[in-house]
């Protein structure tokens, strides 16, 4: 996913909002190993850490939705999104409603903790570059979305979403559907843009759509 980063871009910075010390330790370790490394400027158990310096300056907020036993912190997510922050939701919850709700609110992407090892670094980098990123669980949520206000997807996009969710391997998806990996990626990215486009007015949406237009992923006719 490094291809989304511009060569002149400075190091990506992130703030981790998670009340689980082991998770924080794990994310720190992965960020340090990333290439180029991601600087974790702050981490803490409440969302306050993302509002105060140095966390307030971070490019990307990694937000655990389950900060206590009183339900998902959608309110915190909304406030961060409204303030123009790029939020990667990183949670133990793996249900469709939570994923779709987080995206509706304007989360940049949705990642389950089980996917963290394989996808968190790439997701943070993509978020810093405002490039779409659809991990498998989110893909499954999109692919089985039956709400009336969901965006219209092409049969191919629908297929790619479901197969990516099942296999967690873009190579296998490409082989199964006899298309290229590039095509798999562009399908996933287009779907993410479509969701941004039907979503709530939020800075994330503007950034994603602007970036997609710039990269030629979509044209103004698609909007």
């Amino acid at each position: 996913m490094n291809l989304f980063r511009r060569p002149e871009a400075p190091d990506v910075t992130a703030v981790i909002v998670d009340d689980h010390p082991v998770v924080v330790a794990g994310v720190r370790a992965w960020c340090a190993l990333a290439d180029p490394p991601i600087r974790v400027v702050a981490a803490g158990p409440t969302v306050a850490v993302a509002w105060t310096d140095p966390g307030a300056q971070a490019d990307v907020v990694v937000l655990d939705l389950q900060l206590d036993a009183t339900g998902p912190a959608f309110g915190d997510l909304k406030r961060l999104v409204d303030a123009g922050r790029q939020v990667v939701v990183y949670t133990m919850r793996a249900d469709r409603e939570t994923a779709l709700t987080a995206l509706d609110i304007g989360a940049f992407t949705f990642l389950t903790k089980a996917e963290g090892e394989d996808h968190l670094i790439a997701a943070i980098q993509a978020a810093a570059a405002s490039a779409p990123y659809v991990p498998p669980t989110l893909s499954g949520a999109f692919g089985t979305d039956e709400r009336s206000h969901r965006p219209r997807l092409s049969p191919r996009e629908q297929q790619v979403l479901i197969e990516w969710f099942h296999s967690e391997s873009k190579e296998m998806v490409a082989r199964r559907l006899t298309i290229t990996v590039h095509r798999v990626n562009s399908c996933l990215e287009r779907v993410r843009i479509k969701y941004a486009n039907v979503g709530r007015e939020a800075p994330t949406k503007a950034a994603l759509v602007a970036r997609a237009l710039q990269d030629g992923l979509i044209t103004t006719d698609d909007l």
Partner: peptide
């Protein structure tokens, strides 16, 4: 119930993914 189990599951998940190299007091 899920929230109560989440915390233990997260600990085991992270240990399972190998991010903790040895015995640590915070763990």
């Amino acid at each position: 119930l899920a929230a109560l189990h989440d915390t233990a599951a997260a600990t085991l998940l992270m240990v399972g993914s190998g991010i903790v190299a040895g015995r640590e007091p915070w763990l």
